[in-house]
Design a protein around this nucleic acid. Structure first.
Lengths: 157, 157
DNA sequence: AGTCTAATCTGGAATGGTTCCGAAAATGAA
DNA sequence: TTCATTTTCGGAACCATTCCAGATTAGACT
């Protein structure tokens, strides 16, 4: 069960030689407090800004970039929806609602053996991604595709 | 084994009441001819433009949008890499090379039962996505992260 | 407590794939 | 052939994200 915590993140930053800044503390708080939402950069920015006197969106992007680059969090990258960050580092399936953008986790036993794939394909697996898209509990009864013609980008989080 | 073919796509368009235009024919050809590459909009545009006198990038986007919306192809959406389209409609894992952007398919038995998830979570699964990121055969020996500071968008296809 | 340096932050400009839009063109049925 | 409906076009708009250069700061070491 690898879930992010505020103390854990701070400790990992120290271990890796990063500096602990008020901005990073605020970002970490926003991140952990909103973990189930799989928050995006904008939500993190809004929430973290409440907890430190100075914070810019660029900092959030840079910080989250480093966090995910060093494996402190995982980033879910999307095209028609802003990227999201998740602190559940266990292997799991993300259930992503096509309508409201909600993301829920579904635990997953280790079904596929990366090594097996590596052996057969000569491919070195470093990161996995499994997602199910569909309608969440709330939206399944209220279906109707997004209004307007071609789908518009969301910023749901 | 559900793989796209030129005839199959044209037939499906007819069945669904779409019009068969020279642009769509060219796009279909580019799509099928480059299927293993999981081509993106730009590659499709470049290739298709060779086969019809008139074609705009907007048309490629609109057409591919409709194709994937109607299940004729599947779109792989990325953030730091342009979106890709694939004609392999069987359930499989996409092996995505973090360095060169190559995408290979790895067949996958139906391991996870969507119904099971639906039952437990109240989530209606409509689409699945499973991807492994890492280094492909060619890049595994030539590792070194992308040059430059923060990673730049790719357009590899 | 003070210095110093590399790391970090900032805000605005730039990026670039994708979408949007109105008008022109073309398909396929009658 | 005519006509209604799609489809196409091209350029402008969109917008999350990245980039940049200058200002600030954390933390180590006096």
């Amino acid at each position: 069960m690898k879930q992010i915590t505020k103390e854990g993140l701070v400790r990992q930053l120290r271990e890796k030689g990063f500096k602990i800044t008020p901005q990073r503390r605020a970002i970490i708080e926003a991140l952990v407090d909103n973990r189930p939402l799989h928050p995006g950069a904008h939500l993190i920015f809004e929430e973290a800004k409440k907890k430190t006197k100075s914070l810019s969106l660029s900092t959030v992007y840079a910080t989250m970039g480093e966090f995910s680059q060093h494996g402190l969090v995982k980033s879910l990258e999307f095209d028609r929806m802003d990227n999201r960050y998740e602190g559940n580092l266990d292997e799991h399936v993300n259930l992503i609602c096509k309508r409201c953008g909600r993301i829920e986790d579904y635990p997953l036993p280790a079904l596929i053996e990366p090594k097996e794939i590596a052996g057969k394909m000569g491919f070195r697996v470093m990161d996995a991604r499994m997602e199910y898209y569909g309608f969440c509990r709330d939206c399944v009864t209220n279906q109707s595709d997004l209004p307007g013609g071609r789908m518009r980008r969301n910023r749901k989080s």
